[in-house]
Computed example of a mutant assay.
Amino acid sequence: MGRKHDEKSTILYNRLILLLVSFASCGLVYFFVSAVLTKNSSISLSGSSSLALVGEGGGGGCCRGIENLELWGAAVKWGSDFKFNSSEDCCNACKSMCTGNDGPCLCDTWVFCGNREACGSKFGECWLKKQKDSLAPEKQDGGPPGEENYWISGLIFGKGEGIIAMETEFGTLHMKLFPDCAPHSVAYILELLALRHCAGCQFYRAESRGESWDSEGNHIKNAAFGPPYALIQGTLEAQGTTFKKLPAEDCPTIRRGSVAWIGPGPEFFISLANHAEWKHEYTVFGSVLPEDLHVAEKIATLPTASDVWNNINVTVLERPVPLSLGRIKKRHED
């Protein structure tokens, strides 16, 4: 026997209510996470959210590039004779020329033509190249006005390459960049590096590992996830420059030493601990070399003042620490 029409309506109505409640619950969770991370347009971080990321970033699993960009450089593989079906395959072909033990890669740039209609006979061409200066890659000049650039390009940094200095009065933090995982982010950092100054770049928040994480950044069982939240936070926006929001890129699990954007930037943080509780939220574009993390730890012990950002207790530096970006004077190992 079939149900009466009004019974069906009641069931459908109840199901709709349950669905709306589910959406509302998700919305509340998202709102809480955002509140945990935001102070006005800046974002703070705490360990009580469900934000985290997968894998370490900068690893062999990433193969991202920038569309509508043609990087130049000396060819080590000619694309007219070297073709693939995807940009990932082209990127991996470049990566295969990095053993990981022999220092710099024989290939540090890949350029792929992946638009079948626009590329025509060039479709699938994979050009592998080597830059004179991997921190200032050469770009091909644009074509005639109105003509679209249909290439996609990426960088690969081998062992001892792609490391820049974040200089502060308390010491230098050497950071390995991850262009294969966060190409847009790294392109922005290289633009800042070319300016040879970063007026306005600074650390303004500092929180130690407290009693929640050990010296290796591992969370102590049954301990709280903060406060303090084991990080130093700042901004990478040079005065006099126009900052454009960065797209979300690879979001691995935050590890001790991870350098990541907060939202689309230019606010960023360096993690002093492993934050598995933060999940897939932050674009990681680099990592501080382990031997330099004592500098970040020192900054985390500087005098601070308590503040509340969207109902989250944080500590901000009484005196912000200016930082500048520079090239390293000698090669460092990863």
Rank of each mutant, 00 (worst) to 15 (best):
E7N: 08
R15I: 04
L18K: 13
L19W: 08
L20V: 14
F23Q: 12
C26Q: 13
Y30W: 14
Y30T: 10
S34L: 15
A35K: 12
T38H: 13
S41L: 13
S44T: 15
S44M: 13
S46G: 14
A52C: 11
V54G: 09
G58T: 01
G59C: 11
G60I: 05
G60D: 02
G61M: 01
G61L: 01
C62I: 00
C62A: 08
C62D: 03
C62N: 02
E67M: 12
E67Q: 14
L69E: 08
A75S: 14
W78E: 15
W78V: 15
F82T: 09
F82A: 04
S86Y: 02
E88Q: 13
D89I: 07
A93G: 10
D102C: 09
G103P: 10
G103Y: 08
P104L: 06
R116M: 12
A118T: 13
G120V: 12
G120S: 09
K122W: 10
G124M: 08
G124P: 11
K129M: 07
K129E: 07
L135V: 05
E138K: 11
E138L: 15
Q140W: 10
Q140V: 15
P144G: 07
P144F: 07
E147M: 14
L155H: 02
F157K: 05
G162H: 04
M166P: 04
M166D: 00
M175Q: 10
K176C: 03
L177C: 10
P183S: 00
H184I: 12
V186Q: 02
L192W: 01
A194Y: 03
A194H: 09
L195N: 02
G200Y: 04
C201M: 02
F203L: 11
Y204E: 04
R205T: 09
A206M: 07
H219Y: 10
K221F: 08
F225Y: 10
P228E: 01
I232A: 01
Q233G: 05
L236K: 01
E237Q: 15
E237H: 13
G240A: 05
T242P: 10
K244F: 07
D250Q: 07
C251Q: 07
P252L: 01
R255T: 04
G257I: 12
W261K: 01
W261V: 02
W261E: 03
I262V: 14
G265Q: 03
P266G: 05
E267I: 13
F269V: 09
I270G: 00
E277H: 06
W278L: 15
K279H: 12
Y282D: 05
T283Q: 06
S287P: 05
L289T: 09
P290R: 00
L293M: 11
V295P: 01
A296V: 08
L302V: 06
V308F: 13
N310I: 14
N311H: 13
I312H: 04
T315I: 09
T315M: 09
L317S: 01
E318V: 14
S324R: 04
G326H: 06
K330L: 13
H332K: 14
